[in-house]
Amino acid sequence: MTPSDYIAVPLLVSGVMFFLAGSAGLLRFPDVYTRLHALTKSDNVGLGLIVAGLVVEADSWFVVGKLLFIWLLVLLAGASVANLITKGAMQRGTRMWTR
């Protein structure tokens, strides 16, 4: 392991942890809104951490730029789609979970 690996590996592993947490939410949460909440958080942070890990390992600025660009695109698309799905679900009267 090179010194940069000591930074990269924890980032990568914790990123995957966020994905695992997100899928737990996808399986366990009671309605579409809470599942959406779990997913958008975990996936964006998870991908962010993994991108950070890969940036540490990257060997050129071009790769760093591309990785960050991908992350930004996923953030934008994910947030927009989450908004559209939520708005659609509310318009269609999908009920929110109440205790």
Binding site: L73, L76, A77, S80, N83, L84, K87
Partner: peptide
């Protein structure tokens, strides 16, 4: 199209 979709299309189409 609402503002969100509009923005998404405006950003993603050039990309």
């Amino acid at each position: 199209a609402g503002p969100v979709l509009h923005t998404l299309a405006v950003v993603l189409t050039p990309v």
